[in-house]
């Protein structure tokens, strides 16, 4: 089992340091990916960092080598430690010499130590920065659980949404990217219907389906919140289009009444919902 060349031997005996670094790295990675708590994510990041440091330092190990500080016999200032040997001090007194290849093997590789020395201190500084950000997030949202923060951000965006969305459709894009499915769907349908209504405003037959389509699409995703921005703006476009052709009173009146009534009620419902929910969560 432990003979030369076997994979167990390779991994567990000769390269145990790499195995440990991989395990540590995975622990850190898993914590960063799966944990919701930002503080736990930071702990994962620190473990990850430790794994990298271990990797570098273990690469710098050289068997039979000393620490990367010159021994007294190679000391550039002479061998002030070993005062006893006379010929040695004489040899050292003519100044420092370049070490030969054989002596290079006697000293560990200084480069990984240098890199990790600075990495540790910078790691502490950046960890402090991350902790400060966490504190700020806690002050702002009352929680450092990632999913709760995201929910709060979403709700706040909903509240700020109606005022932003009336100005232009494009401004609603960043908000829609978060809740992809209903938003893109409603946008497509609304632009489609608006186009259709614009292109042939005189035909009776075609405007009626477009308004009904608009209605149906709205009723489909009435529960989804970002929809209102699209529906409101689309209603603003669709209204003059539908009012132009002289259709029966029924289909014309319906969209008017609905487009004015719906978004308002939806927005007011949303306004009340977060304000109700908001004070509840910080108490936790």
């Amino acid at each position: 089992m432990f003979e030369e060349g076997a994979i167990i031997n390779e991994l567990f005996i000769e390269r145990l340091n790499y195995l440990i670094y991989v395990v540590l790295l995975l622990i850190g990675l898993h914590a960063m990916i799966s944990k919701n708590n930002l503080m736990k994510k930071l702990i994962g990041m620190s473990i990850f960092q430790t794994a990298i440091i271990l990797f570098y330092v273990s690469v710098g190990v050289k068997e039979g080598a000393s620490i990367p500080i010159y021994l007294p016999e190679h000391d550039p200032h002479g061998s002030h430690v070993s005062l006893g040997a006379g010929n040695e001090t004489e040899e050292a007194s003519h100044g420092p010499v370049v070490l030969e290849a054989g002596l290079i093997k006697k000293y560990a590789n200084p480069l990984p130590h240098v890199l990790m020395l600075t990495a540790i201190v910078v790691g502490v500084a950046t960890l402090g920065l991350a902790l400060a950000l966490c504190q700020r997030i806690y002050q702002g949202y009352g929680t450092i659980e990632e999913d709760e923060i995201l929910a709060k951000i979403e709700r706040e965006e909903m509240r700020a949404h109606p005022s932003v969305a009336v100005k232009s459709m494009e401004s609603s894009k960043p908000a829609t990217s978060k809740v992809k499915k209903p938003a893109t769907k409603s946008k497509e349908s609304s632009t489609l219907s608006a186009k259709r209504a614009k292109s042939n405003p005189k035909t009776k037959a075609k405007t009626a389906p477009s308004t009904s389509q608009l209605k149906s699409s709205r009723s489909k995703s009435a529960s989804s919140q970002p929809k209102t921005s699209a529906s409101k703006s689309s209603s603003a476009k669709a209204k003059p289009a539908t009012s132009k052709p002289k259709t029966k009173a029924k289909p014309q009146a319906k969209p008017k009444a609905k487009t004015t009534a719906r978004p308002k009620s939806a927005s007011t419902a949303k306004k009340t919902a977060p304000s109700k929910a908001k004070p509840r969560t910080p108490k936790k």
């Binding site: 068997e63 080598a65 070490l99 000293y107 200084p110």
Partner: peptide, 29 residues
């Protein structure tokens, strides 16, 4: 990791690299 140098091997690329060899040999000078 199977292709990485063995633990403490003096022949590992990191130890053999001319950069660190230069540092060890010439720092004193």
């Amino acid at each position: 990791a199977q292709d990485f140098p063995e633990w403490g091997s003096p022949n590992s690329p990191a130890s053999q690299s001319p950069v660190s060899s230069h540092f060890i040999a010439n720092t004193g000078v």
